[in-house]
């Protein structure tokens, strides 16, 4: 007869879900939301810096001037820069939405995933640009992974309040929100 406690069956410590940990997690989510809120402030329409070669246009152009990943450089050069106003509005609306949804913790996992996508796009634009600190962008990606892994909107967030409501509903929107919160 084998011994009941083997290495494989060894108990694993649960994550700390105490009040302090939950408060810290909520604070991280709000701070990440504020990161996007603050960064919505300098993407200025209507031309987003295209005429003066500044702002969002300058940072997006880095993908061409200081390439990181050739297919992405091609995409920016041939698709993004020729349609820059449309792209600028897309970025502004996405980042403002990321800020708003992450600050209140609504559909947190969905918006954290979008935050990863946007962080990757930023990384591929500016990683090789002068005076950039690469770990800024790696940490941006990592912190969004944490928000997804911990379902951070359920702690002091709107997701925590609405999930029981969504669970009682059989509608497709409620089911979707239950999945992405």
């Amino acid at each position: 007869m084998s011994h009941p406690t083997t290495d494989r069956a060894a108990p694993v410590e649960e994550m700390d879900t105490g009040r302090g940990s939950r408060a810290a997690l909520a604070a991280v989510r709000v701070v990440v939301g504020l990161l996007w809120v603050a960064n919505s402030g300098w993407k200025t329409p209507p031309d987003f810096g295209e005429e003066s070669g500044s702002g969002l246009f300058r940072f997006t152009s880095y993908a061409v001037e200081h390439p990181v990943f050739p297919p992405y450089t091609w995409l920016v050069e041939n698709l993004v820069l020729p349609n820059f106003t449309l792209f600028g509005w897309g970025v502004l609306l996405l980042e403002a939405s990321l800020g708003a949804f992450l600050v209140v913790g609504l559909a947190t996992r969905l918006f954290a995933a979008l935050g990863i996508a946007q962080s990757v796009a930023i990384t591929l634009s500016v990683l090789n640009a002068p005076n950039e600190f690469p770990w800024t962008y790696y940490l941006m990606i990592a912190v969004h992974v944490v928000l997804i892994a911990t379902a951070a909107g359920r702690t002091a967030g709107v997701d925590g309040l609405l999930r029981p409501v969504w669970r009682r509903s059989s509608g497709p929107v409620a089911r979707f929100l239950l999945r992405v919160s």
Binding site: K43, T44, L92, E95, A100, F101
Partner: peptide, 11 residues
């Protein structure tokens, strides 16, 4: 304000 104002009010 600017985009940050809109995002915060949106939140």
């Amino acid at each position: 304000g600017n985009g940050s104002t809109a995002a915060f009010l949106g939140a």
